[in-house]
Design a protein around this nucleic acid. Structure first.
Lengths: 186, 186
DNA sequence: TGCCTCTTTTGACCTAAGTCAATTCAGGAG
DNA sequence: CTCCTGAATTGACTTAGGTCAAAAGAGGCA
């Protein structure tokens, strides 16, 4: 996810995004379908109205999950979107989902004469940088168990919907290890 | 570092930064001095003209190095700068250094009527997000030795100037381990 | 030249987490 | 209900990397 928990009630989108709303299309996404694909150009960003997504990178046949996206989160691959190059990761629906899609052309169009929108994007990215740096830091300073407990604490509801193997991949550990951690904690 | 290797020859700054140049102040920084401090508001970004910096986070008396900044790199704490909140990390000169400082007020002033500058910042941040995601990914998919080799390959010159203990911290390992990795490789 | 301090190296031992392989469990399709 | 398939658990064993403590280098400077 790029942004965690935007406070949206359909009409309660962030001010800066309102001008984009006329261009946005609501779409149903089937479980297992991709919104962004590693190797292909990412030409949208989206807001999750319903469902769960995972973002992952594939190397040597192996998937590494870098994040999850839940209801109320904005997501995209900023590197691909803003540099106009192929995406370095895949974003896949883990459940049937409903999203609000903002096509790239419209975003870029709107961006040209809309300073609040630019500011909004900058803040979003700056906050995401912080999220990533914190994760990097916690990966070194905390044990797998501590990281799992922390995840439970920050995302108690959402985490229940995600298979153990995916959570393990996100935490950077094996499924066996997470299984044992859960056993120990119960 | 926020940006790696800007192609600067004093006058070869990125187009978008030129309007900021009149506000920029060149300053000498003594070894050991801070440009940004964890817990304090970050009110600048800077370009390294000479010297080396390290960025680190402190928890429980322990420092964790999140990155180095070399000649030609831009750096700041974007989270603090753009949200106007205390910095989550410290940026310290590892050697005597010379930097070009862009004060926050001037940046924010210039940002208001300068779309190319906004675009430039967005690209910078999007690229840094990618750098961080790649690091996070490599921390799980590669061994300490592979990560060290890769660092050697991408920063062969710069790395020579940095004490072993700092490199180890950056790689997320102990100094003893890095010492052994070096021994094995020689 | 010699002393002090900081950095790096080396050795012995420990532990968190991975690997592999065999079960067990759970949910959907007939 | 029963079968099948993918997910989760469990056990036995291995390993990358950490910890602690001591020794060896390597400047800087009086």
């Amino acid at each position: 996810m790029l942004s965690p928990k935007i406070n949206f009630d359909t009409k309660q989108l962030p001010e800066a995004l309102l001008p984009l709303l006329t261009f946005a299309r609501q779409r149903n996404i089937e479980k297992g379908k991709y919104l962004v694909e590693q190797g292909l150009h990412c030409n949208l960003f989206f807001l999750v109205l319903e469902g769960v997504f995972r973002t992952y990178r594939t190397t040597d046949e192996q998937d590494f999950i870098t994040g999850f996206t839940f209801k109320g989160d904005l997501d995209t691959n900023p590197y691909s979107l803003f540099n106009n190059i192929p995406s370095t990761e895949t974003i896949e629906a883990l459940t049937d989902a409903v999203v609000l899609i903002f096509p790239k052309e419209d975003l870029f169009e709107a961006r040209n004469n809309n300073l609040p929108l630019q500011d909004f994007i900058i803040t979003l990215l700056a906050n995401y940088v912080e999220t990533l740096e914190t994760r990097l830091h916690q990966n070194r300073s905390m044990t797998a168990e501590q990281r799992y407990l922390q995840l439970l604490q920050t995302q108690p509801e959402e985490i229940k919907k995600i298979p153990l193997g995916y959570i393990a991949s996100y935490l950077g550990i094996t499924k066996e290890r997470l299984s044992r951690i859960r056993k120990k904690l119960s």
